[in-house]
Each structure stands twice: as structure tokens, then as C-alpha cells.
Amino acid sequence: MTEANFVLAAEPRKEEGRRNSRRLRRAGRIPAVVYGDGKPAESISLDVFAAYKFLGNEQVYSNVVTLDLGVRKESVLIRDLQMHPYKDEILHVDFMRVHQGELVTLNVPVHLLNEQNAVGVKMGGGLLHRALTEVEIQAPVGKLPEAIEVDVRELQVGESIHLSNLKVPANVVLVALKHGDDKEVVSIHAPHGAASEEEGAAAE
């Protein structure tokens, strides 16, 4: 968990609709909206260069962001980025207002530790397979982990790690487990040649 303060400047906007959104983008700004916390939704805009730099940081997606609107500030989480169908272009950003201690649900990345030193890879020649690159969690604002770390050093060929095997911080819940879905996170498979040989031997 980080104590960093993530601040993004924004400006209120009154004009809405596709035509005005296109006009904003031509002027170097990205249309966005802030909603939630029992308040009316508010249309805002972001400077395109500042937004791309800010949103390129993985940490901002699992931390509370402060939107600086000049005369006031809003504490928010980034909920959605609408991307252009085939260009690397952000068309719209959704922010959700939050307050300290509020229980929120979001996706955080899975970071694998000791990938190259995993026993099944280094000693067994196995192939590491990532089944999940992110997991959905539920946690209070202020207690959100930036990522879930998974140490694969002791993982052998043919073994796997599931959600139920993960160590998560206190107050953090893995949403899939709440619904009885113990997803595989990572595993080590035998090399294709070795697998074929084993199958052949079993057939004999």
C-alpha cells in the first residue's frame, strides 16, 4: 500500500454531448465524469498530456485520486477508461467519488515474485503459465493494496496456485472466493516434449 498522493487537475464543463466532446478533444482535452457518494454526476475535462502521463502509472488504479477542480477537490477512484476502437487514444474517463473507510470493489494487478527462480522452471524445465493478471478485490478506501504479490519460488512442475492460496492484507477480500470460485492464478506445466513422453509411457 502506498502513501503517495495522486493529484490530477481537472476543469468543470457545462456543455455535453458528442459534438462538444469532439470539440474538447480537438482542443487537447479529454471529457470525463465524476459520480457517486450521493451527489449529482458532474461533467469535467482533463488536459490530454497531463492525463496520459498520470494514467500511465499503474498505481493510480488502486489508489484514491484527488481531482483538483481549482476551488475544491474531490476524492475519487478511476472506474473506467473508454478507449478508441483502434487508436491508442483515451476518449472518456469515469471517476467515482469515495470517502475514507468506504468499502469498494476494484481490480488490482497480480505481481509474480521469483518467476525465473521457480523450482519447476529453473530445475524442472517447466513452463510458467499465468492464468490471471489481475484479481477483483473488496476493501475499505485507505486499505487498498496496489497489487497482490504471489511468490512462485517453490512451485514445482504440475503444481498450481489458486486464489485460496494467496496471502492478502487484512480487510481485503477476494471477490471470486466469496462466490466459491477458487480460480487458478499461476501454474507450471511440463515441457510439451516431456508431457508427450509421459503420456506414451502411461499408454504402454
Rank of each mutant, 00 (worst) to 15 (best):
E3N: 15
A10R: 06
E11D: 10
R13S: 04
R19P: 00
N20G: 06
N20W: 08
R22A: 13
R26N: 10
A27F: 02
I30L: 14
A32C: 08
G36R: 07
D37F: 11
D37N: 14
D37I: 03
G38R: 09
A41W: 00
I44P: 03
I44V: 15
D47H: 10
V48Q: 12
A51T: 03
Y52H: 13
K53L: 07
N57S: 11
E58G: 04
Y61P: 09
Y61Q: 08
S62F: 02
S75D: 13
L77S: 08
I78M: 00
R79E: 13
H84P: 07
K87T: 06
K87I: 01
E89Y: 12
I90C: 10
H92Y: 11
R97F: 04
G101E: 03
G101V: 02
E102C: 05
L103H: 10
L106M: 14
N107E: 15
V110N: 10
L113K: 14
N117F: 10
V121S: 07
K122A: 12
G124R: 10
G125P: 02
G125Y: 01
G126H: 05
L127P: 00
L128K: 04
A131S: 13
E134P: 01
I137A: 09
Q138R: 15
P140A: 05
I148V: 15
E149T: 12
V150A: 05
V150E: 03
V152S: 05
V152N: 08
L155E: 03
G158N: 05
G158E: 04
E159K: 11
S160L: 09
I161N: 00
N165I: 02
L166G: 04
K167T: 14
V168L: 03
P169F: 07
A170G: 02
N171D: 15
N171L: 08
V172P: 07
L174Q: 02
L177G: 02
D181H: 12
D182Q: 04
V186N: 08
V186K: 10
H189C: 00
P191M: 04
H192K: 14
H192I: 08
G193I: 09
A195D: 07
E197A: 14
E198R: 15
E198N: 10
G200F: 12
G200S: 15
A202P: 01
E204V: 12
